[in-house]
């Protein structure tokens, strides 16, 4: 028996919003420790890794490990049926071929359940090695979304350069070029408004702006985004999911031919 109850169904809606551009379907691996999802986008350029810890749920029970392959389009339709203030519970029997979503209004006057068929998906689990990154940048998630949106008007690629002074985002294309420099915040009153750089060595890498833009669909999950970079390894774009977990996007850099 698997059962996970979350008072804020909006978290699940936001998680889905954050992955459904990149993935058509995904396997939710449920165990005693929580719910994990790892999947490559269809073009194998980026990897999505999500973790929701069991202790972050209001109720969590998982007697046996269960992998639930879900069509994210169908899941989106079902979650649209939940009001933001509803309490959501996901339930499945061991070896089940369906999952049930139960939505309860805060006053318990309306209770709905939706059963969704599960899919058998080929699992391509990749090992993500522990990496010491040369640069780790934290900045307001809304600012990062704005930068990705603005720069994607110029070209297909965004160059991210990180030095101890700050971080620069650049793009160039047919209409011209654009550079956005963010300096490290000197006085930090509110952490969520700060730009911070932890740097071992300067790094400059080039990424596809289309993917960076897709990652920013997670912006509503967190005030802060963390970018981790090292030469010749994938960028990690990380958003915390409240006190319950995180979503990380790995994007391979572009290389010169």
């Amino acid at each position: 028996m698997f059962e996970a109850r979350l008072v804020q169904s909006s978290i699940l809606k936001k998680v889905l919003e954050a992955i459904k551009d990149l993935l058509n379907e995904a396997t939710f691996d449920c165990s005693d420790s929580g719910i994990q999802l790892q999947a490559m986008d269809n073009s194998h350029v980026s990897l999505v890794s999500m973790n929701l810890r069991s202790d972050g749920f209001d109720k969590y029970r998982c007697d046996r490990n269960i992998s639930m392959g879900m069509n994210l389009g169908s899941m989106t339709k079902i979650l649209k049926c939940a009001a933001n203030e509803d309490v959501v519970t996901m339930k499945a029997q061991d070896n089940a071929d369906t999952v049930t979503f139960v939505f309860e209004s805060p006053n318990q006057e309306k209770v709905s359940d939706y059963e969704m068929k599960l899919m058998n998906l080929d699992q391509e689990h990749l090992g993500i090695p522990e990496t010491e990154y040369a640069c780790v940048v934290r900045l307001p998630a809304g600012e990062f979304a704005r930068i990705c949106r603005d720069l994607s008007q110029f070209g297909e690629s965004v160059v991210i350069s990180c030095t101890k002074e700050g971080v620069k985002f650049s793009s160039a294309g047919d209409i011209g070029s654009a550079n956005i420099k963010l300096a490290q915040t000197s006085n930090v009153d509110k952490e969520e408004l700060a730009v911070t750089v932890e740097m071992q060595e300067p790094v400059t890498l080039t990424f596809a702006s289309r993917y960076l833009n897709s990652f920013t669909k997670a912006t509503s999950l967190s005030n802060v985004v963390q970018l981790s970079m090292s030469p010749d390894v994938p960028l990690v774009v990380e958003y915390r999911i409240g006190e319950i977990g995180h979503i990380r996007y790995y994007l391979a850099p572009k290389i010169e031919d």
Partner: peptide, 14 residues
């Protein structure tokens, strides 16, 4: 500009 790597080239299959 540039070629896009396949993410599998970086990460190890479990």
């Amino acid at each position: 500009p540039g070629r896009q790597f396949d993410i599998q080239e970086y990460f190890l299959e479990d």
